[in-house]
Design a protein around this nucleic acid. Sequence first.
DNA 1: ACTATTTCCTGGATGC
DNA 2: TGCATCCAGGAAATAG
Length: 295
Amino acid sequence: MPELPEVETIARGLAKRVTGDVIESVWLGQKKEPLKSPAAEIASVLEHSRIVEVRRMGKHIVFDLNDGLKVVGAPSLARGRKSKPRLEEPTPSPSRPAQWIVHLGMTGRLQVCDPQTEVAKHTHAILKLSSGRELRFVDPRRFGRLSVAAAAGFYASGVEPLEVDLDRFVGLFHGRKTPIKSALLNQKLLRGVGNIYADESLFRAGIRPRRRASSITHDQLRKLHQSIQEVLNEAIALGGSSVSDYVNAEGEEGFFQLQHRVYGREGEPCLVCKTLIKRVVIAGRSSHYCPKCQK
DNA sequence: ACTATTTCCTGGATGC
DNA sequence: TGCATCCAGGAAATAG
């Protein structure tokens, strides 16, 4: 299941492979679920556009596009900035700014391949690139979503967990009676944290998932703020967690699942105190925690 | 304005 | 072996 670290890994991989490429033509499948915008609109925005940047916003992958017919030296420009951490720099006035936004849902994959490669079952979109390759969107469970945004740009609610400062982080939970686990999964508050990283962060912060968000002390929230950033950064460094079928843009697995301390470890001993890890369901999501280490 | 619950999907696991 | 049933989960929709 791609959450922030997996999506970040995928976006970085895609950026390396398709930045500067022009989308020559687009094929969209008949299934309507994966399409958030009308098919004709998606196709018309994508066709003849140049991919000038690929980046992550929350769990979304954003392809920044401009007019592919104009030669703007986009590839070298984009490549030059790649090594530096991405700051909020204004894009250099693209001639026809637009964006392609992809949410992978549970089982969505973006593959870059030769046209000869056999089209996988559940392929919903194929973009022909000027480099001769294809960018394909495959999603068996169809929880993923494709959409486009025009000049105004794609807007995602919520704050980036890796950028939010402590004060604003603490403010997110003020007065909320919902369990802290649910609050962490709420993308309108914090964008990008999913089930695995919520459980792992709560374990490191020593907070039980059912605790009401408003009842958590400032000191514990400070710990949680730090735990979330730690967990996400460690996971990104290891290329994400490969549970079920996640692979990055190069088809490689991540390794953070080997570092999971509670997620998927129901009935196994806590790595700190040997107490057996419990699993409960909160808001329909399985939640794993150590009854002794987390209060 | 919040919060809780249901719904959408298919493949893999489980049970008989 | 085959068939039915259950479960996983992000986020939108619906209900309270």
